[in-house]
C-alpha cells in the first residue's frame, strides 16, 4: 500500500506547482473582500435611503459578505481545475501508475485540496468581515454579537464545501471543461433563479449552495425552511456524496 503521508506530500507539490492555484484562490479573496467592501461603503453612505420601508433588522454581517456569490465561483473553478487538469493532459494515467490505490489517492487529493481551501476561506471570511465592518461605520457589528462568529466561520465552511463539492463532481465527470460548463451556470444562474421561483424553490432550497449559505445568516428570515446547522448538514451531505461518487467513478472506470 502506498503511504498516505507520501500521497499528501505529493499532492501538495502538485497543487502548489501550478499557477491556476494562486490565481483562483487570489481571485476568491479579492472578489469576496472587494465586493463586500464596496457594498458596505455604499450602504453606509446611503443608509437611510437603502433602509426605507424595510422592516427586518439590518444585517451588517451579510452586507459585508455581499461578494461571496461571485467569490465562490473562483473557488469552484479552483476545485474543478485541481482535479480536472489531470484528465485533460493524460496525467491521470501517470498518477494512477504511481498510486494505484484509487480510493486512497482521491482521499489524499481531497484532504490537500480541502485543507488549502479551508485556510484561504477562513482568512478570506475574517478579512471580509472586518473590512466590511470598518466601512459600515456606526452600522457595523462585532464578532461578540449573537451568531456573528458562527456566520463568519459559516462563510469559510461554505466556500470550502463548495470547492470540494466541485472537485467531487469533476472526478465524476472526468472532464474539466464539462465540469465548469455544468457547475458555473448551476451556481451562478440556475440555483439563485430557481430558489425564488414559487413551488420550484422548495426543491431549490435543498441545493448545496442555498443550504450552505444558511450558515451565513445572523437573523432568522421569514419563512426560512430550516436553520443554519441544518443548512450545514445538507451542504456537507452534498459534498460527501460528490466525493464518494467521484471515488466510485475513479475506481470503476478505465483510466
Amino acid at each position: 500500500m502506498a503511504s498516505f503521508p507520501a500521497i499528501l506530500r505529493s499532492e501538495w507539490t502538485k497543487i502548489r506547482s501550478v499557477r491556476s492555484t494562486i490565481w483562483t484562490l487570489a481571485l476568491t479573496f479579492v472578489v469576496t473582500v472587494g465586493l463586500g467592501a464596496l457594498l458596505s461603503l455604499l450602504t453606509n453612505n446611503n443608509f437611510t435611503e437603502f433602509r426605507r420601508n424595510v422592516q427586518t433588522p439590518f444585517d451588517a454581517t451579510s452586507t459585508a459578505f455581499a461578494g461571496i456569490r461571485l467569490g465562490e465561483l473562483a473557488i469552484i473553478v479552483f476545485g474543478v481545475l485541481a482535479i480536472g487538469n489531470e484528465y485533460s493532459s493524460g496525467l491521470i494515467r501517470v498518477t494512477l501508475a504511481a498510486v494505484p490505490q484509487r480510493g486512497t489517492l482521491l482521499t489524499g487529493k481531497a484532504v490537500v485540496l480541502g485543507a488549502l481551501a479551508l485556510v484561504v476561506s477562513v482568512v478570506t471570511a475574517f478579512i471580509t468581515f472586518f473590512t466590511g465592518q470598518a466601512l459600515l461605520g456606526s452600522h457595523s457589528t462585532t464578532l461578540g454579537e449573537p451568531h456573528v462568529l458562527r456566520a463568519v466561520f459559516g462563510a469559510a465552511l461554505y466556500l470550502t464545501m463548495l470547492c470540494l463539492f466541485s472537485a467531487g463532481v469533476t472526478a465524476m465527470l472526468r472532464n474539466q471543461t464539462l465540469a465548469l460548463g455544468v457547475l458555473v451556470p448551476f451556481f451562478f444562474l440556475l440555483s439563485p433563479i430557481l430558489s425564488v421561483v414559487p413551488k420550484v424553490k422548495t426543491l431549490a432550497h435543498y441545493f448545496p449552495d442555498y443550504a450552505g449559505s444558511r450558515m451565513l445568516l445572523v437573523f432568522e428570515e421569514q419563512g426560512q425552511p430550516y436553520g443554519p446547522w441544518a443548512g450545514f448538514a445538507i451542504c456537507l451531505a452534498w459534498t460527501l456524496a460528490a466525493l464518494v461518487g467521484g471515488a466510485l467513478v475513479l475506481k470503476s472506470r478505465d483510466a
Binding site: K14, S17, R19, V94
Partner: peptide, 16 residues
C-alpha cells in the same frame, strides 16, 4: 506529453 503544461519539469518529477 502527459504532464501539466504549467508545471516545471522538476516539479513534475518531484511529485512523482
Amino acid at each position: 506529453k502527459a504532464v501539466h503544461p504549467g508545471r516545471t519539469a522538476r516539479d513534475h518529477l518531484l511529485w512523482l
